[in-house]
Design a binder for these strands. Structure first.
Length: 780
DNA sequence: CAGTGAGCGAGCTTCCGCTTGACTT
């Protein structure tokens, strides 16, 4: 029996550490937090100094009991949870839940998983820092109070099942306000002048004898631009000045969770949750260090590995070892930056995604320890005596590539690395203009957030943590506040004026604008909830709220403040706000009057109903009932027109007849469909229920029927209720609307009816016992 | 799983942060 029990947070970490310690140490993991506030009620006793009531969640009872047993059998328990606020709380909860004795318990910390770091930690144990634990309790209780008092206000005033919280509500606010800015943005245009010059006299023909230059100013109107081009007709251009400047470019620090999510999104097109899933796989197979971190720090071991590796591949002049420090507010830095475990492995991974993400992590980590790139920038000024404006041509030569050999941050496009060479010119050289163009350019609105750029913004504001970025983004989508959509571009005309061979020609060209790939758009519900919260809970929705309370948590951790007094000071005015909001405001529906029905003259309004945004014709009075229709995807209360609203009432629509029965087209909860007899058939993206033809509808019905026929592997004459079907995960048995797995050793094609019934019975019985066990444990 | 939308009232929903399996069918 091991004399020592070490408890860490992650099982993978436990596995790694096992190799560093002797057999006297048993390493186990708590799988994160083991206790939390009660789920059923508030879980905080407001009357009694905000005393929290903690519970062990059902899915943690097993691990807690196991740890209890091991603790009992050990002489010493080493609590090795992470070195931050949450980690300290986990250790404290372990002491409480496992009933650990003080003289048998030690708290140790390490923020890199290396043998020396761990042995060092064992030699320097300490006690649990109760002040840090209190700071965590304050954080936890505050979040519970805010979330569980605000959400019910939304249920009453707007719609059931909505939610609000310190983090998610601010994330939604960012998206709503960005959309408002975009809606009120007025694009203006100006004319950019681009000239292509050639050297007047060329001693010998070279490939590169053209100079592309931009005028240092833009013109506000077409007339100004045209006037300028006219002046250029007779102008004699020459090189007025040449300026050379050496610059350096430094690599970005190694990845944190947030920067990994951003780069994987931009370079690999991964969603935030996909990045985390694949990173988790790499972590669990020992390929990379921990993927939920806000630290840019690398261990000394990693630095020396990197130094050796860079020298080996590129030579010592490419080595430049750096220690990075974080600039992020509220960073806790309990772990290393994300890096390959073994820096000498350049490529690894079980599938394409793992390989791509690993390569990205490797490059970024290696580049962070490489030399700066050296560039020479050249600015050439081109003038003509008859013109007061200047043209500037820019050139750039890479003198030494340094870290650019392996990694380029995608803010800078690939083109940036390539040399932008200028032809050899000298001051005073005469130039002829091959062509000069005036191009109408429009100002752009701010970009909409992507998942990854939202994470970046949240991190800047100190909202959320590496472990919650991905879940928060999925929460605000699940609540229907925000949608992640790709919207097609629209075309816009712009004016293009050219001056070639002394002739000015004006043409109208078109460009595609507004293509939005995987961007976050607020929904009507998101907009209404946000404006309600901002109006009544301005302080909570303030972008600095988290940063401000973090300061207080820090003071609690330093022992300058008592946690429940701090909470009490916050809670009193906050609770008053909640009561005021409940009393004073009416139910909010975001109602907007669209106009009158041309047929009946009744009012048409759009608003949020129990099931989301709708259009309503007429009012509910006397015997008359209003007519309702749900808004379609992409439509919103703010922008829907009366024509679009009236169109919604054209469904459901009879399309035609098939096999003696009517085909009806409509839009349901899961999108557009046609209905035939009592069966539903989903329409494809290209079909419109408003216009779909009888012929096309029949095609869709037949396609699905054919697919269903293929799905059936076996049916039984004796019992029509049981079938063997082919599904996404292979063959399975369908029986009385429930599905059953077929044991691996059985061939689905040869199963008999009695065998099938036996399988369903066995699985049902197993399930019952599992549920029974679960209930029993819950009662404990 | 696809026709909802008043109002009544039951009972439910909800937070953030720390961790991975369950589980398909």
């Amino acid at each position: 029996m091991a004399k020592n029990l070490v408890i860490v947070e992650s099982p993978t970490k436990a596995k790694t550490i096992k190799g560093f310690l002797s057999k006297d140490f048993l390493i186990k993991s708590s799988f994160g937090h083991i206790r939390d506030l009660s789920k059923k009620n508030l879980g905080v006793d407001i009357e009694n100094n905000f005393t929290p009531s903690y519970e062990i969640p059902a899915d943690k009872t097993k691990i807690v009991n196991e740890l209890k047993k091991f603790a009992k059998e050990s002489d010493m328990v080493w609590l090795a949870s992470d070195e931050d606020r949450e980690g300290e709380a986990i250790s404290w909860h372990l002491v409480e839940a496992l009933k650990l004795k003080e003289n048998k318990t030690k708290r140790i910390v390490f923020h890199e998983i290396t043998k020396t770091a761990i042995l060092d930690a064992i030699n320097n144990p300490r006690k649990i820092d109760k002040k840090l634990v209190d700071a965590q309790q304050a954080r936890r209780v505050l979040d519970r109070l805010v979330g569980f008092e605000l959400s019910p206000v939304l249920w009453k005033k707007i719609k059931p099942s909505l939610s609000a919280g310190r983090v998610q509500s601010v994330a939604v606010r960012l998206i709503v306000e960005r959309e408002k800015e975009i809606n009120s943005f007025k694009s203006t245009s100006s004319y950019k002048i681009i000239a292509i010059f050639k050297k007047d006299s060329l001693p010998k023909q070279t490939n590169n004898n053209e100079i592309k230059a931009e005028l240092s100013q833009r013109f506000k109107t077409k007339d100004h631009a045209t006037d300028f081009l006219k002046k250029c007709i007779s102008a004699n251009f020459f090189i007025k000045n040449i300026e050379k400047k050496s610059t350096k470019k430094s690599p970005a620090p190694p990845f944190t969770t947030s920067t990994l999510q951003q780069e994987a999104s931009r370079k690999l097109g991964f969603s935030v949750s996909k990045t985390m899933l694949i990173a988790q796989q790499l972590y669990e197979s020992g390929k990379i260090t921990y993927m939920r971190t806000d630290s840019v720090n690398l261990s000394n071991l990693a630095l020396s590995m990197a130094k050796k590796e860079i020298s080996n591949i590129y030579g010592t002049k490419y080595v430049n070892i750096r220690k990075y420090s974080t600039k992020i507010k509220g960073a806790q830095e309990a772990h290393e930056a994300i890096r390959p475990t073994y820096i000498n492995i350049h490529n690894t991974g079980k599938d394409d995604n793992q390989k791509k993400l690993y390569a990205l992590i490797w490059k970024r980590a290696i580049a962070s320890q490489m030399s700066e790139a050296l560039l020479e920038k050249t600015n050439v000024t081109i003038e003509a005596n008859s013109i007061k404006e200047k043209f500037i041509a820019k050139g750039e030569i890479l003198k030494f590539d340094g870290f650019l050999k392996v990694y380029m941050e995608s803010d800078n496009t690939e083109n940036d690395i390539q040399n932008k060479m200028l032809p050899p010119v000298a001051i005073g050289d005469k130039l002829i203009s091959k062509e000069i163009n005036a191009i109408e350019k429009f100002t752009q609105h701010q970009p909409r957030y992507t998942e990854a750029s939202l994470v970046k913004k949240m991190e800047e504001l100190g909202i959320g943590r590496p472990s919650t970025y991905a879940p928060t983004i999925s929460t605000i989508q699940k609540r229907g506040y925000v949608v992640n959509e790709t919207r097609e571009s629209i075309t816009r005309n712009y004016i293009y004026i050219t001056l070639i061979n002394d002739k000015i020609k004006e043409e109208i060209k078109t460009e595609n604008i507004g293509y939005e790939k995987s961007k976050l758009f607020p929904t009507d519900i998101g907009i209404v909830v946000n404006s309600f919260l901002v109006e009544h809970f301005k302080n909570i929705l303030d972008y600095n709220f988290t940063a401000n309370v973090e300061k207080e948590f820090d003071e609690i951790a330093q022992g300058k403040k008592i946690w429940n007094k701090t909470i009490s000071k916050f809670y009193k005015p906050f609770h008053k706000q909640v009561e005021d909001a409940l009393e004073t405001t009416e139910r909010i529906s975001g109602e907007r009057l669209l106009g009158k029905d041309p047929e009946t003259g009744e009012k048409i309004i759009t608003r949020i109903g129990r099931f989301g945004p709708l259009v309503q014709i007429g009012e509910n009075k006397d015997d008359k009932k209003p007519k309702f229709a749900s808004l379609r995807k992409g439509q919103s209360i703010e922008t829907i027109t009366i024509e679009e609203a009236l169109n919604l009432f054209k469904l459901p629509r009879t399309v035609g007849k098939y096999e003696e029965n009517e085909i009806i087209a409509a839009i349901g909860r899961f999108g557009p469909y046609v209905k035939h007899k009592s069966d539903f058939y989903s329409l494809t993206k290209n079909d419109d229920p408003m216009t779909i033809s009888e012929q096309r509808a029949i095609e869709i019905i037949e396609e699905k029927k054919e697919k269903n026929r293929k799905k059936i592997i076996k049916e039984f004459e004796e019992n029509k209720n049981i079938k063997i079907l082919n599904g996404k995960y292979g063959a399975y048995i369908s029986f009385e609307k429930k599905n059953y797995k077929i044991p691996k050793d059985k061939d689905p094609k040869t199963l008999t009816l009695s065998e099938c019934l036996k399988i369903t019975k066995e699985i049902s019985n197993n399930k019952k016992t599992v549920q029974h066990n679960f209930k029993k444990k819950k009662n404990n």
